[in-house]
Design a protein around this nucleic acid. Structure first.
Lengths: 235, 235
DNA sequence: AGGTGTGAACACTTTCACAGCA
DNA sequence: TGCTGTGAAAGTGTTCACACCT
């Protein structure tokens, strides 16, 4: 199912060439706007100005408008954006209409937390395949999903046409498992292992590295006090 | 609310030297270099050139040198960097010499995964306070740490001089809990709730939003087929 | 030679400011 | 009138290229 490419070839609802590269920050903001807009929708707000949206999303009105402008013009001058319509537009831009087939590899602590993570489900990412190496885990049921043997990875990816793999294995295993997944046809990887994966260019990769986030905090806290007198570090 | 910037109005109190703003990407790369260098150290490599480091970290040699140049000159021309010394330098830059007091708020599935997350410990971030609202959880022991009542948050933060809070509570609670933590003296927050926190400027904040990462993947996969010309690798 | 440190060039992102439309 | 959409300006981050040191 979902023949990857060329779903927009013919009658694309998108206007002119969207072929220019969209920056990662723009994409992340779109995801953010989407969440904000869904909340506004629930609160019964029918329209939203770029200014209102910016306030809720922690950015600026100009940024909001520029972000949307890469994909078309969705607003009404003098009025703002129709919340429900904009939700649909962003979902379409992000490809959330597609029911991606997602597999989780690694049924350890992080894996299980991710599996249960309510926000994946509510946003349409259903994990219906879980793999692990540990014989103690293989065969165990998580809800309606049974943990399967990672040795079956290739067959499973092919048969179920897995698009995205969530990688929650130890760093030492990450590259090898990723290679196998890619070889079998996976197109995107969400990597939780603290390891720099080397992948073919056409494979989409997102890393989540929580240590990096904590170390960024540490850096900021360390710097905060250094304004008046730099605590010099001599050689 | 939040009287934005009123601290830097007149002349900048910041000194020249090392006080220029360091970009977030630089900080994240430093964290990455550190991990790579530690691995090289274990492998017995005594020196590393910017080129070798770049290869392992997935960036460029010029980028590596520029990143370091913001903090000093740590290399030897013609030779490269002394691995052990550079590890020490980066740890110092990131403030990893400091034993930050970290509290985890939210002992649910994500919270427990984070608590057990080996990489926090091995990198020196010890979580020795865990709080939750749920009476079923309060009093339970996780290793040597006993889950405490979140109603005690203010007292605990003050008494234990908590620097950093890892926020793993539902989005609906996140802002309120963050406000209390900040009020009690916390200086940095690692936020796992999919909620845009509004905090005073001097509080360091890092967000981890896994849905956003998955949606970025979805966007890339959706766009993949739409490239103007697939640059096939010519022989 | 070999590889760092860094100003200058380049590329990319954000902000400004205003024309244009509902 | 009010707010979008967008070129142009300003600001940031990355890459280049080479002087300089070991």
């Amino acid at each position: 199912m979902i023949p990857a490419a060329r779903r927009f070839t013919a009658a694309s609802p998108l206007r002119n060439a969207v072929s220019t590269k969209i920056s990662d920050s723009t994409v992340r903001r779109l995801s953010h706007y989407l969440r904000v807009l869904e909340a506004m929708h629930l609160q019964g707000e029918a329209t939203a100005s770029s200014d209102a949206l910016a306030g809720r999303a922690g950015t600026t009105a100009a940024q909001v408008r520029k972000d949307f402008s890469h994909f078309g013009s969705f607003g009404k001058r003098g009025t703002g954006y129709d919340v429900a319509a904009l939700v649909r537009e962003i979902r379409s831009i992000l490809g959330l209409g597609t029911a991606w087939n997602v597999a989780l590899i690694g049924a350890g602590r992080i894996g299980s937390a991710l599996f249960e993570y309510g926000d994946f489900r509510s946003r349409g990412f259903r994990i219906d395949t879980v793999l692990d190496v540990d014989p103690e885990r293989i065969g165990v049921s998580w809800g309606s999903v049974v943990i399967e043997d990672i040795s079956e990875l290739e067959r499973i990816v092919r048969e179920r046409e897995i698009d995205i793999v969530i990688l929650a294995v130890p760093a030492s295993q990450a590259q090898a498992v990723a290679d196998r997944a890619v070889e079998a046809g996976v197109r995107g990887i969400l990597n939780f292992a603290p390891e720099q994966l080397q992948l073919p260019e056409e494979i989409a990769l997102q890393n989540v590295n929580m240590v990096m986030e904590l170390e960024s905090l540490s850096f900021e806290l360390t710097r905060a006090g250094r304004a008046p007198e730099s605590e010099a570090l001599a050689g």
